[in-house]
Every structure is written in C-alpha cells, then in structure tokens.
Amino acid sequence: MEQPNSSYLDAFAKGDEAFKKQLLDILRTELVEDIDLYFENLNKKDYPQAKLYVHRIKHKMGMLGLEKSYALANKYEIGLLESDLNQQQYFESMLPIMTEYLNSN
C-alpha cells in the first residue's frame, strides 16, 4: 500500500516545526471528522454528501504525498455521482493508514 509522507508539509513549513505541527494538528482533527461524516452519509446512501467528504479526504491525501491514492479517490469521487462504488475498497483501506500516520507524527 502507498505510504504517507510529509514532503509537502516540510516544503511548505520551511523548517518552521511549530507551523508544521499546527498543520498536522488541523489535518488530524479534520480527517477524523471527514471520515466520520463520510461513513455516516455512505451508510445512509446519501452519495452526493458522501462525495463531498471523499473530496475533502482526497485533498488531505494530496497533502500527505499519496499521489496514487489521490488519483483513485478522484475516480471514486466522480463514480459516486452515479452511485458507482468501484473504488470504495481501496479508498477506505487508505483511511486507517492516514490516521495512523497522523497519530504518530
């Protein structure tokens, strides 16, 4: 599986560790909320709303250097418009990996 990294955040923070920590804190908090709301809406089969949270999580994948996952999340996001869940399994498999990475940084 693809693994997250902090290249983007490092480049962005330019050595300002406090700022990097601030961003990681926000990422961690928002990701938990996004995941909860994603599953909540998916379970209700409210795909347009679930799509919105896939979109938000996709952005966070980009920030964590998960390029392949970002591309697949994009497909999943588009697929949800037509209730297409083909990419669901891969997308959801990345969520604990992202969470674990953020919790350990």
Partner: peptide
C-alpha cells in the same frame, strides 16, 4: 473555504 487546513495554508502564503 470549509477546510480549516486550506484556510491556514492560504493565509500563511
């Protein structure tokens, strides 16, 4: 922007 992370990044830039 609804994402705080994005708001912080834009503000920082």
């Amino acid at each position: 922007d609804d994402e705080q992370l994005s708001r912080e990044i834009i503000r920082h830039m």
